[in-house]
Amino acid sequence: MTTFTETRIKIPMFSPSRVWTIATGTMTQLVRMKTFYFLLVFAVLVAAIGNIDIKSASSVSQLETIKKVSFGTMDIFAWLYAIVATALLIPRDLEDRTLYTILSKPVRRIEYLIGKLLGVLVLIAASLALMFTLCLLMLAYKQSGFIADEIKMLQAAPNVTTAEIEEQVKLIQRQGVRPELAVAALASFLKSSVVAVMTILISTFASSSLFTIITSIFFFLIGHAHGMMTDFWLHKTEGNLIIRMLTKVFKLLIPDFQLFSFSEGIVIGAEVVPRVVWSMGFLTGGYLFVFLLISLMIFLYKEF
């Protein structure tokens, strides 16, 4: 009999294929848990948004409203999905003891964590892509309708040159489908990625999905508003030392989610600065790295 050790098994330090196995397992799990049904809800919402009819608003501002509301909803759905889907993973694996069987296979705990995160991220990306497509379709549909109406109206009016019609059409198009909107969707993705990794971190020490969801939402709110809260509380409680310290601590420990809300400006029509978008991508990478590291520090010593 060969003495067991190096002879039979070579286990790499880090195996992308194991990570991918866990990631695809996670995706199948979430898909088959029907978490994607929220996309149906989203589709219904977008359809409803598309039918908001503001009597006294111009077509330009109606289009803008549709765009803002649908992209805003998309952003909310993305981070909510990131929290809920992620929170369903690790605590559930633990409850079902599936985690035991996985971790008793030659799988490193870091691979498990990365696999779970990767699975969630791929799903978030996929659902964002779907939602984005829905938004674009709705926008394109509304836009073409508005343009047709506008042209009809202007052609009926006296003394309108084609150049002037074009100008009006351009005005509408400015609020319609534009390539920059993809960057807005990307912004939502970056935000949800950070939300997902934070949720993973919380779920490494949480004991239930519900606790994870509530805690994550709580930190998300703080992380989204701490800049503003600092302002608010400091103003109200003029230099209260404890509060000042507290907000500093919050700022240091909790991700600044508000910074990731740059889809809002882009949707309204702000110019996209590619350098800044790249930087935000790197910042997201930093968050993913550090939060994964911390998750691992907890998870590595966790006993099941």
């Binding site: 067991f4 050790t5 098994i9 286990i11 397992g25 199948t28 799990q29 088959r32 848990m33 079902d96 003891r97 599936t98 035991y100 069987t101 008793s104 296979k105 030659p106 799988v107 490193r108």
Partner: peptide, 24 residues
């Protein structure tokens, strides 16, 4: 981790991913 590749484990009252088939 090397030891684990030589071990098979069946926990008590296991639940596996309910949504996977036996083969999966």
């Amino acid at each position: 981790i090397k030891a684990r590749s030589e071990i098979g484990f069946l926990p008590e009252n296991p639940y596996f991913y309910r949504h996977l088939s036996g083969e999966e």
